[in-house]
Design a binder for these strands. Structure first.
Length: 120
RNA sequence: UGAGCAGACCAUGCGGUAGCGGAAACGUUAAGUUUACGAGGAAAGUCCGGGCAUCACAGAGCAGGAUAGCUGCUAACGGCAGCCGAGGGCGACCUUAGGGCAAGUGCAACAGAGAUAUACUGCCGUCCUCCGGGACGGUGAUGGUGGAAAGGCGGGGUAAGAGCCCACCAGAGUACAGGAGACUGUGCUGCUAUGUAAACCCUAUCCGAUGCAACGUCUAUUGGUACUGUGCGUCUCAACGUCUGCUCGGCGGACGUGCAGUAAUGGCGGCUUGAGCCUGUCGGCGACGGCAGGAGUAGAUAAAUUACCGCACACGACAGAACCCGGCUUAUCGGUCUGGUCAUAUC
RNA sequence: CGAGGUGUGGCUCAGUUUGGUAGAGUACUACGUUCGGGACGUAGGGGCCGCAGGUUCAAAUCCUGUCACCUCGA
């Protein structure tokens, strides 16, 4: 991934849930929060409600694929946490990637602009 | 041909495009390029057993836990193999926590006269009688209840009855024979013994604790707090700590102060060749063992095996390694092979 | 990786230790009460006790396996 590091600290997840903005769809929920770094950080959550280990792994792969394909369109300097929902297991990857390409990046850009610039 | 039993095995395949993980080679300040490799029969549940690591180890007793026919296999096991007993199936075959209530204690509702020892209705004898029956003694076959009524059934016997006696069956004890043993067979004694130990318990055997977030090692910061080691001073053999819990017993003396070291975080190691797999052969009924030959890189750390397309068909189930093995249990679309059995038909 | 607990009427829970009758509150139905409703009173229905085996004369209870959920420790 080009400008992206992995977000793996529990505090950062909690900060994204509490202080970030979010947008939701049928397959996933996206939390966004500026982090003040010259790169993005991506965290993926696939909880127990998604399914068994096979389903959770598949959900993580699909999200990672979708993020990789749309990475160029995203702004820089964000903490992004994507939470998988149960229906993502039964869907083809093109549908999810297409959704992310069409709406997801636009939503993230909109949320990014919605944060006050001076704060950053 | 149909039904059924046991065992073993496979787990969609091939091609293309893009991408991921560690490794090797090339290149090198680096970016990168190429190559081969990259989830399972259960990887799952974590129910047992072991390896490995650290800590503790003079020991003794009690408590606690596990196992429970016999012989073997194994590193070990609560696993497996063969056999014995019991039960089920016409059969192939399957199931089986299967020591001890003839040490002790407890429990057995309801029903029933009576539930671990008793006598309501009865039966028989003697006596009495107001002829309805009553008293005393014998008896435990009969009635109904119950899971269970004191071995079962038949005959003899008797006033009426009873293993009181006899035959057969069942159980117990004992002797002999066979077997490695569980046990089996035969003879004799002889009727005393309800069920429950997956009730407490007794008997025999086994069990140190913690778990790769173990543990080792390197490094940054804060701080003089905590811990460890050691030198000096003071006080005492009590308290405290530790040895799984308790008792005895063992080991460490405690406090103050000086010096040295350690740390939560991160990196690296542990981390994958192992009581392993396949083939042949020898020993063994078998589990398994010996010998010979052969093949063989998952090792991540928010965590890699993917996404999409095309073709074929049976239209693809359950499901994702996290220190490693041996088992057990559970989930599973379907398919293949081998060996027995029963029924029917034909020769 | 390890330790423990809970599954019982629609809902919340007793009963499991010490095996024999499944119970309480609430909800539901009917009747009474009231001018009518609520509250109250009386009566009633509703349970393969998570699932599958076993021990026992007899299992919600004892034992074994299994499924789901919850909690805790490192």
């Amino acid at each position: 991934m080009l400008y992206t590091e992995i977000l793996n600290d529990n505090r950062d997840f909690l900060a994204a849930y509490k202080k970030g903005r979010f947008t939701a769809c049928k397959y996933s929920v996206i939390y966004v929060r500026p982090n003040g770094c010259p790169f993005n950080r991506l965290g993926i959550t696939a909880g127990k409600k998604v399914g068994n280990a096979v389903c959770r792994n598949r959900a993580k792969r699909l999200i990672r694929l979708a993020y990789r394909q749309n990475e160029a369109a995203l702004p820089v300097g964000m903490d992004i946490v994507i939470v998988a929902r149960a229906p993502i297991c039964e869907v083809k990857s093109q549908i999810y990637c297409g959704y992310m390409q069409k709406y997801g990046s636009a939503e993230i850009n909109r949320l990014f602009r919605s944060f006050p610039v001076g704060k950053k």
